[in-house]
Design a protein around this nucleic acid. Structure first.
Lengths: 213, 213
DNA sequence: CATCCGCTATATCGGCACGATACATCGACG
DNA sequence: CGTCGATGTATCGTGCCGATATAGCGGATG
């Protein structure tokens, strides 16, 4: 439904540029460190994505000699600073509210989570529940795979399967707590003021299966 | 070094066909279930891979009306049965012994593990240690990412990072046990008979970060 | 008994992410 | 003063993935 976007990169780039304008290289650093070891984001995918966003008018190149002319520093190396546009912000809002399949994927969910600060509480819950559903499906698949192949499977592989299953189970538990917290925050009772004050969920520990590298 | 192969699929296909000849559709089922929820392996990648292996002479198409002519059953639907060739078996041996980077990757490691039964003990240890090194690097990256970004990071993302870190730590522990077991099996003492009897490591429980779906 | 649904089975196409690589400029180090 | 390692932008080929097309077949449903 919504706009027929595609890549996870789009959300990551738009979300990052919404916080502050920057050039490609720094963007990559932010995405690789701030968003964690979550995803590599090579230039081979970043620059094409920037081009696409540029063509769509969601971002714009910012000419040098800007507000901060106080620092001419050395020389201006050929660096292109990207800024999000008005339509880009609309697009970002759409992407943030989108709880479609791509928001449940391993990569997509991580990105969505990183921008939960900008996401409306209702969308948060939709995304979290979608993710939980997805992970639960995976869990069932793993369980049946282990039960089904317990005999004809290599002992090594079975251990690996078991490992993955437990990681999945931990993620489900984590999501459950997260959803519960979010719902408490969202409705402290029927027909009551929303109260969007402090939204940080209580810090806890758990286990999940991110896919870095 | 070795032969300049590429995809993980090659090993998966060759390894599966070494156990028994079969056609594409069944191959996919095996890879999706027997190898677990580990990897999807769509036809869009399977058939091209089969073509490549066919062109390289590593597999061959088996004409119908074979040994089991006792079951003409219904009709013969257009099905192509693939069989591994002599050169294919050599190639498989190379791939199994290869402890290069692709055997440390999330996907590649799972495949290698699935065929550990066919893998020589020395190669097993090399692969396991390579994988451990890789996962340890990931762990360090996650730790520093959490330490570095503890403040400027979203609380949600930090939790997710924490989750991933714990999963990684569990995988390291698991690998450590696996390696220890393997080494015990490999050399019960210097200059002693190998004793390749029961190779199954003791069944235990742990957690890891496979990346299905 | 006809039709429709879903499984088996093979195959291709477009999109796109990734790793490698190619350029440039700069700062620092010996 | 030369070279090494960052910074920085950009492209190319390889190859995977999801969707899609086609088609025979078996059972269910009306």
């Amino acid at each position: 439904m919504g706009s027929g976007g595609s890549s996870v990169l789009e959300l990551a780039v738009l979300g990052s540029l919404a916080e502050s304008s920057m050039h490609g290289y720094e963007l990559r650093k932010r995405l690789s460190s701030s968003l964690g070891t979550l995803r590599a984001f090579s230039f081979g995918s970043l620059y094409p994505s920037l081009k696409r966003l540029l063509a769509a008018g969601h971002i714009a190149e910012e000419s040098p000699a800007e507000d901060v002319d106080a620092v001419p520093l050395s020389s201006k190396r050929s660096r292109v600073v990207y800024t999000i546009t008005a339509t880009g912000k609309e697009r970002l809002a759409d992407l943030l509210a989108d709880s479609g399949p791509q928001s449940w994927s391993d990569d997509g969910f991580g990105i969505h989570l990183a921008f939960f600060g900008r996401t409306k509480p209702e969308a948060r819950i939709r995304i979290l529940e979608g993710r939980r559903r997805r992970v639960e499906e995976r869990r069932e698949g793993q369980r049946s795979a282990i039960a089904r192949a317990a005999d004809r499977m290599d002992g090594y592989t079975e251990q690996l399967q078991q490992l993955g299953l437990e990681a999945t189970e931990r993620e489900v538990r984590w999501l459950n707590e997260l959803i519960a917290t979010e719902q408490q925050l969202g409705d402290p009772g029927p027909a009551t003021a929303p109260d969007p004050s402090g939204a940080k969920p209580a810090r806890r520990r758990g286990g999940a299966d991110r896919r870095p590298s």
